[in-house]
């Protein structure tokens, strides 16, 4: 995703001198080409995320479209008040880009797990929250993010994710993107859980379940109309995200459905609200934290009552 991001950003930056990229001293190798090609559009503010957010706001208010780039929690939680008071209150054209969404940096430990960012950013006024599901979404969304006035939070994974959408799929900011049509179960995904949900959908085929998978890359503003229309067609709805069960996609969808009086069997497939257990690769951590495709398959089966039951453990872990 990170590669798709920087390629796409270079394309738009070559056409639009208002675009500048600020890094908080991260992006080794990733940002090199941008820096070499567009030196006048590149700034490194050093290891100083509060400054990153404040300087970005000033630059934006002076007429630029500013991308800030860093890892997970650094340009978000470290400078949360700057995001709120400076970026969001001024509705500044600052696009906050993080890499390492969820457990992408699994071996690096808790400091590098970005597992509450969606909830926290979603609560801030004026900011659009975007968590693309694969590199093709990233490539299509970046120019749209440039064109959308005001703050945007773009949560990326790492490098090397596979493109899972079929070629030619149109990705529109603010609108969910269907990755797989189905009839029994609706899997709504945020960010890098898209391929996991597709894998689970394949597994569910053996259980004679036909899952629809939709990437809700834009968590805010949520396309409530489309979410309601989708959910009304399925008896079982599961939200999937590599994020705390509190306040992310699951919370957003639950709020919408309950208020609309749409009541499918609903579960959040997400991390329990504690700190994720263990250290290791993203794949390993997904497994030990019950966030991989077999775990999703088991959860769906428990909800549909089809064959083996996984019991309520995934759904009941959320304790607030």
């Amino acid at each position: 995703m990170r590669t798709a991001f920087i390629r796409s950003l270079m394309e738009v930056a070559s056409q639009d001198p208002r675009i500048v990229l600020l890094t908080g001293d991260l992006g080794f190798a990733v940002l090199d080409e941008f820096r070499a090609k567009y030196p006048a559009q590149f700034y490194n503010v050093g290891v100083a995320e509060q400054n990153l957010a404040g300087v970005a706001t000033g630059l934006a208010l002076a007429g630029h479209v500013v991308f800030t780039y860093s890892i997970g929690n650094f340009p978000t939680l470290r400078c949360l008040e700057q995001l709120r008071n400076d970026v969001c209150y001024h509705n500044a054209d600052v696009k906050i880009v993080t890499v390492g969404g969820g457990l992408s940096y699994g071996t690096l430990g808790v400091s590098h797990f970005a597992t509450e960012d969606l909830a926290i950013l979603r609560a801030l006024p004026n900011v659009t929250v975007v968590a693309p599901g694969d590199p093709s979404e990233v490539a299509q969304l970046v120019p749209q993010i440039v064109g959308r006035p005001g703050p945007v939070y773009l949560r990326l994974g790492r490098a090397g994710e596979k493109v899972v959408h079929a070629p030619g799929v149109e990705v529109v900011l603010g609108r969910p993107t269907r990755a797989r049509a189905g009839s029994n179960v609706l899997l709504l995904t945020a960010g890098g859980m898209l391929p996991v949900a597709l894998e689970a959908a394949d597994l569910l085929e053996d259980d004679e379940l036909d899952a629809e998978v939709v990437s809700v890359h834009t968590l805010k503003p949520l396309d409530t109309e489309e979410i309601c229309a989708l959910a009304a067609r399925f008896p079982v709805v599961v939200t999937c995200e590599e994020h705390s069960a509190i306040g992310g996609l699951g919370g957003a969808v639950a709020e919408v459905l309950l208020e609309a009086g749409i009541a499918p069997t609903f579960r959040r497939f997400a991390l329990s609200p504690g700190f994720p257990a263990g250290v290791g690769s993203q794949e390993y951590l997904r497994k030990v934290n019950a966030l991989d495709a077999p775990a999703l398959q088991a959860l769906v089966l428990s909800l549909t009552g089809t064959r083996r039951s996984a019991g309520p453990r995934f759904a009941a872990r959320q304790s607030g």
Binding site: V20, A40, Y43, Q50, N51, A53, G54, V55, A56, T57, G58, L59, A60, L61, A62, G63, H64, E81, Q82, N85, D86, Y89, H90
Partner: peptide, 25 residues
């Protein structure tokens, strides 16, 4: 009023951003 303030320690970074913007242009 160009910018809102109230939480201390925000203003100088905003000013540095403005100054960078002026220099760029």
């Amino acid at each position: 009023v160009d910018v809102s303030t109230g939480a201390l320690g925000h203003g100088l970074a905003l000013a540095v951003g403005f100054a960078a913007g002026a220099m760029r242009q």
